[in-house]
Design a protein around this nucleic acid. Structure first.
Lengths: 120, 120
DNA sequence: CAAATATATTCATATATACGAATATGTGCA
DNA sequence: TGCACATATTCGTATATATGAATATATTTG
């Protein structure tokens, strides 16, 4: 006999979660986040990003390729230079959400410390 | 002589991008996305998720532990059962953003096909 | 305490990712 | 065409992640 009740509902979004995960996964790397953060100010050349962040040129190129592959950034060639930009304004929202998760976590940890840990 | 101008601006968010990446990274896995999608309907027991998604019990447990570690979900024990819930409402926004990225990408691909590919 | 249920952790391994170094491709210009 | 600048790709390898199987821990109840 189950001690805890099971609610019969739950509908899941349909479709391929792998595709969604690929998009999210592209955001799960510190260097890519820095690149996106830079791009959130506007279009930049690949080389500009290399200089700004002081990463290896191939590193930046590969990260940009990955971000482009999943559709987070778009590119535009102008002569010898390739300009990158965010493909979707919602990326900024990602950052805000992450900040929110982190601050929520901090708050919870504070609670832990003063609550559980404080006395005993 | 650089052919493309360099704009001198660009301010980056400060702080540790690795922490942010850890949070985002937690969302970059199809099974975890399915778990979060399930939890977006409300609190669930670990075992309920196992049954709903038909994953191995240790797999679910580990994914939940990871999600909890980065602060995306919280847990609550009630007797033998452990209930999990989203720690932060913004997680739903993540999904919407991902959908937006994917649909933007689709739109762009359509454009490619009818534009570049159509004639040539 | 023993047994049963619910969840968590460990271990070995398979797979995916990230990176530097080297090299290739693409573009404009003399 | 040949050179210079800008970006992309390949290769070998180091590191991280995911997983099933087995095992451990926690909680309730008899």
């Amino acid at each position: 006999m189950a001690a805890c009740s099971i609610k019969g509902r739950k509908r899941l979004r349909r479709g391929d979660y792998s595709i969604r995960a690929n998009v999210a996964n592209a955001l799960g790397n510190p260097k890519r986040l820095m690149i996106l953060d830079a791009l959130s100010d506007g279009e930049m050349r690949a080389g500009e990003i290399v200089k700004l962040l002081n990463f290896e040129q191939p590193t930046v190129s590969r990260h940009l390729a990955l971000l482009r592959r999943v559709g987070i950034v778009e590119q535009r060639r102008e002569g010898k230079c390739v300009y990158y930009r965010l493909a979707c304004s919602c990326v900024t929202g990602f950052f805000n959400c992450i900040e929110e998760v982190i601050s929520t976590r901090l708050r919870r940890q504070q609670r832990m410390l003063s609550g559980k840990g404080g006395r005993a």
